[in-house]
C-alpha cells in the first residue's frame, strides 16, 4: 500500500486518511522539488554564465511585464489547487463519521487516560478494534495537551474547559505511538501512550473481560505494587533509582524525614504515603512543584497498601 516515492521519509500508514495524506504530501513535495531545482539551477547558471570575468557589457533592463504576470498567475493557480485538494482531505480527516465508536480521553500532566462506554478504563493505552471508526472525545484536567498519532496523521489539541474530538479508523492490527505534541511542562516528552489495534475478535474478548478486581494473591505485595505503580503512571514523576524527576524518588523514601512547604517536617510512613496519594497537594515537599493529581476515588485501599509495600522494598 505504501508505493509512495517518499515513503522512506514517512511514518507508518495506519489508515485510509493517512494514505490520502501521503498522496497530497507527495504532490506538494514534487511541486517543491520542481521549483527548487528550477530556481537554484537558474541561479547557479546565472552565477556561472554572468560572472564578471566573462561579461564585457551588462544589458540592463528594468523588468518585463509579461514575465511578471506569468510568475504571479502560475503560483496563484498552483496554491489554489493545493488548497482545494487540502480542503477535501481535511474534511474527511476532521469530521467524525456518524455512528463512530466513542472513547473519552482525558489529558493530565503527564499521562493519557481513556474511558470506554462499558466502564472500562485504561491509562497510557488505547485499545481499539481494527476496521472500526473510532471517535475520541477529549478534554484536559490541567493545561493544554495535544493528542497526536503520527501513523494516522491526526492531531488535536486537548484543552481544559472544552471538548475537542478526533477520529481515525485503523486498517490493520498493530501498535502505534501516541504523543503529546503541545508543550505541557516538566515531563512533556514522557507523555506517551500506545494505540493498540486488535483484530475484531480479540478486541471483543478484551472488551468483555471484566477487569480482575480481586488481587492476585500468588505474588508478593511489593510485586503487585510495582504493577500498580506502572498502571497509575507513578513512575512518570517518581524514579526508582534515586534521581529526582518531578517528584521525590521512591528509592529510600520510606522512613525518611521530608521538609514540607508549611515549615513542618514529616516522617514518611504508611500514613504519609496514603495521604500523599489521596490529597497530594495539601502540604507539599520543599523543592518539588505541587502538581500531582489526586487519586481519590480511583484507587482502592488494597491497592494503596500494595504500592506502600513496593515503596518500602526500594531500599539500598
Amino acid at each position: 500500500m505504501n508505493t509512495n516515492a517518499f515513503s522512506y521519509l514517512l511514518p507508518g500508514t495506519g489508515s485510509h486518511v493517512a494514505s490520502w495524506w501521503n498522496d497530497l504530501f507527495s504532490f506538494v513535495m514534487w511541486i517543491s522539488i520542481f521549483f527548487f531545482v528550477l530556481l537554484i539551477g537558474i541561479t547557479l547558471a546565472f552565477v556561472y554564465k554572468y560572472h564578471h570575468k566573462k561579461v564585457d557589457k551588462v544589458i540592463d533592463s528594468h523588468g518585463n511585464t509579461s514575465l511578471e504576470i506569468l510568475w504571479t498567475i502560475v503560483p496563484t493557480i498552483l496554491v489554489l489547487f493545493i488548497f482545494a485538494w487540502g480542503w477535501l482531505v481535511y474534511k474527511k480527516m476532521h469530521r467524525p463519521p456518524a455512528g463512530s465508536f466513542e472513547v473519552r480521553v482525558i489529558g493530565q500532566q503527564w499521562r493519557w487516560k481513556f474511558a470506554y462506554n462499558n466502564g472500562k478504563n485504561t491509562v497510557g493505552e488505547l485499545i481499539v478494534p481494527v476496521g472500526k471508526r473510532i471517535k475520541l472525545l477529549m478534554t484536559s484536567e490541567d493545561v493544554i495537551h495535544s493528542f497526536f498519532i503520527p501513523d494516522m496523521r491526526v492531531k488535536q489539541d486537548v484543552v481544559p474547559g472544552l471538548y475537542t474530538a478526533l477520529w481515525f479508523e485503523a486498517i490493520k492490527p498493530g501498535e502505534h505511538v501516541i504523543y503529546c505534541s503541545e508543550y505541557c511542562g516538566g515531563l512533556h516528552s514522557n507523555m506517551l501512550a500506545t494505540l493498540k489495534v486488535l483484530p475484531q475478535d480479540e478486541w471483543l474478548e478484551w472488551w468483555r473481560t471484566q477487569e480482575k478486581t480481586e488481587r492476585d494473591l500468588s505474588i508478593p505485595p511489593e510485586k503487585r505494587g510495582e504493577g500498580l505503580a506502572a498502571k497509575y503512571a507513578c513512575m512518570s514523576c517518581h524514579s526508582v533509582d534515586g534521581s529526582s524527576l518531578i517528584g521525590p524518588s521512591f528509592r529510600n523514601l520510606f522512613g525518611r524525614t521530608e521538609k514540607l512547604t508549611s515549615g513542618k517536617s514529616a516522617l514518611v510512613d504508611e500514613d504519609y504515603i496514603r495521604n500523599k496519594i489521596l490529597k497530594p497537594n495539601s502540604d507539599g515537599v520543599v523543592g518539588y512543584p505541587q502538581v500531582m493529581p489526586s487519586f481519590q476515588g480511583q484507587i482502592s485501599e488494597e491497592e494503596i497498601m500494595d504500592i506502600i509495600a513496593f515503596i518500602k522494598s526500594l531500599k539500598d
Partner: peptide
Amino acid sequence: LSFLFVFLVGGLTGVFLATLPLNVHLTD
C-alpha cells in the same frame, strides 16, 4: 545567494504548512 537557497526551502516548506491536512500532522 545563501539567503536565496535557504529562504526558498523555508518558503516551499511553508506551502506544506499552509495546506490544512498536512499542517495537522506537521504542526508542533
